[in-house]
């Protein structure tokens, strides 16, 4: 085995040891280069990288890529995670971020209403740059501006802050925000449903319409033979078959990646592979004879 060089991180000599492997850990999607491909995910990461220097970050990156983060939960104002280090028990990580007050959110929502494109883009999975400007215009910041805005904690013995475990969580958060900008808003205190319920100045309050079919009322079966054996007459004319999927896995692509995916293979790749394979199998054997 190659001898690892010890490095000076400004505090002590530190000999890197490989962490214990985790099965089914949350693995970062990016395996090389920068994390997060969207600007807001990168901005999130940039704020971290602005706060600290040194080898910790690099170690955090490799932890995130290696799937060492075993668990991660986002709540308003708080992120908790379990990260597997060199010890047998994973370390508990907590990141706290100040939430905006209700009144502050009220101002944000009013501003959002002025520019519907913002909310539309969010729903489409992107955060327009003007979104940050909107916050700045109200003198709020979307991302942590100063190191004090973030309160982080980790049960590992490393004294530096952020340690590599916190950094790993941070990188994964960046990627998660990439896929779903609403997670960032959730962290700042506003859940998605609540946002749209309160968006706009009027309306009948946050009434969530029942999305599943209401439980059917059970009607007794009719005893009359004619009604018993026959249903409603079939619709007139043949149904025009719906347009074929323009692109494979279109629905999944619109939804974007599943947050905090732990699978061995990247989520979008796995999904695309499934749908592509299904399409290929269908092309080989359509199954039903087309009308001649």
């Amino acid at each position: 085995m190659r001898r690892r060089r010890s490095t000076w991180d400004g505090f002590s000599y530190y000999r890197p040891e490989p962490p214990k492997a985790v099965k089914g850990g949350i693995r970062a999607r990016s395996q090389r280069g920068a994390f997060a491909s969207q600007w807001w995910g990168r901005r999130w990461i940039a704020t971290l990288e602005g706060f600290s220097i040194g080898a910790r970050l690099g170690r955090g990156r490799s932890y995130a890529r290696g799937g060492q983060v075993a668990d991660l939960t986002i709540e308003p104002g708080r992120v908790t995670a379990a990260v597997q280090g060199t010890r047998s028990k994973p370390y508990a990580v907590e990141i706290r971020l100040k939430v905006l007050t209700q009144a502050q959110w009220g101002e944000v929502l009013a501003a959002l209403a002025e520019q519907p494109i913002q909310a539309a883009r969010l729903l489409a999975g992107e955060m327009p740059p003007s979104f940050e400007e909107l916050f700045q215009g109200l003198h709020f910041s979307l991302f942590p501006a100063r190191q004090d805005d973030l309160k982080t904690q980790c049960s590992c013995p490393d004294w530096s802050n952020p340690c590599k475990h916190i950094a790993a969580v941070y990188y994964l958060l960046g990627e998660a925000f990439d896929g779903d900008p609403f997670l960032l808003l959730k962290l700042r205190g506003m859940e998605r449903e609540a946002l749209f319920a309160r968006l706009g100045t009027a309306g009948s309050g946050p009434r969530e319409r029942e999305v599943e079919r209401a439980a059917e009322t059970a009607e007794p079966l009719p005893a009359d033979p004619a009604a018993f054996w026959r249903g409603a007459p079939a619709a007139d004319g043949p149904w025009i078959p719906g347009a074929p999927a323009p692109v494979n896995a279109a629905a999944v692509k619109r939804l974007g990646p599943f947050p905090f995916w732990r699978g061995r293979e990247d989520f979008m790749n796995a999904m695309e592979r499934l749908y592509n394979e299904a399409a290929a199998a269908l092309a080989r054997d359509p199954g039903e004879t087309p009308h001649s």
């Binding site: 706009g200 309306g203 309050g205 969530e208």
Partner: peptide, 12 residues
Amino acid sequence: RGAGEVREWLLA
């Protein structure tokens, strides 16, 4: 339908 629901749907 409620305003919030319509607006969310419309924007999407």
